[in-house]
Simulated assay, not measured.
Amino acid sequence: MPLNVKVTLVTLVVALLVVNISIYDKEQHLAHGQVVYLELAPVDPRSLMQGDYMALRFQLQQKVYQALPKTVPDESRPWRQAITVADGLAVVKLDERKVATFEALYEDQPLAENELLLQYRVRHGRIKFATNAFYFQEGHAGLYQDARYGRFRVDEQGELLLVGLNDEALNVLTSLPD
């Protein structure tokens, strides 16, 4: 067998292995991650439903943003503050319904029994948790108009995966397999 065919086959096997390991990891995350609910932040109703997806923002984003250190890049416009740090972890407290509220930025402090870590990312000066959109089948926007919480699965590293949307009483509006 020529060398270039061997290299191609080995590359293909390695690529398939990497993809399958990633899929397995996400399936384990969905199956065994802790359920957490993040309250949705109000958005302009005209931009809430855009085609076949819903734009998502979370109350927690604003709390994390307020806690992060900032700089004033232009002295003549002090209202334009920039975040000085990048990605990190937020400590959240879970109530009896597993709804998360912001406690602090994580700085290696011990966590209480009802606290856990959530990863956040800073992109273009904004805080992001897992995703900023929820995709649904075209024509089904009305199913999600009562959404008040995003339901997530969280792993030990604080990585979030969105699995559905819930209403005020935490009733499932939509669901991926839990």
Rank of each mutant, 00 (worst) to 15 (best):
A31P: 10
L68Y: 05
N4T: 06
G33P: 08
Y37R: 03
A141Q: 14
D95Y: 00
V92K: 09
P45I: 12
K70Y: 01
G150R: 00
T101F: 02
H29A: 10
K98Y: 05
F134I: 06
E103I: 14
L162E: 02
T71I: 02
E39V: 04
V163E: 11
K128Q: 14
Q61P: 01
P73Q: 01
V92I: 10
L12P: 05
D87I: 01
E27S: 14
V13Q: 06
A55V: 15
H124F: 13
L89M: 04
E168G: 00
Y53W: 12
G33Q: 08
D167H: 05
R123H: 00
P42E: 15
V19T: 03
S175M: 13
A147E: 06
L3Q: 03
K93L: 12
D44I: 10
A169P: 02
A147D: 09
S175I: 13
L117G: 02
A90Y: 04
Q119N: 12
W79T: 05
V172N: 14
K128Y: 15
F136E: 06
G125K: 07
Y65H: 01
L117A: 10
D108F: 04
L105S: 01
R80K: 05
L161I: 15
A67C: 03
V10W: 10
D87V: 01
N132H: 13
L160F: 06
A90T: 04
A41H: 13
P45K: 05
Q119Y: 09
Q66G: 00
M49V: 15
R126K: 11
L56C: 11
A169C: 01
V172Y: 13
L160C: 14
N132K: 14
F129D: 07
M49G: 15
V36G: 01
E39P: 08
D155C: 07
D44K: 12
K26W: 09
E39Y: 03
L38R: 03
I21W: 10
D74Y: 05
F152M: 03
G125D: 06
I23Q: 11
Y135C: 13
R126Y: 11
F58Y: 15
M54W: 12
L117C: 00
T174V: 15
V18W: 06
R151N: 08
Y120E: 00
A104D: 12
D167M: 08
R153N: 02
L170V: 09
F102C: 09
S22Q: 11
K6A: 09
L89Q: 09
L12G: 10
Q66L: 13
A104F: 01
R121V: 11
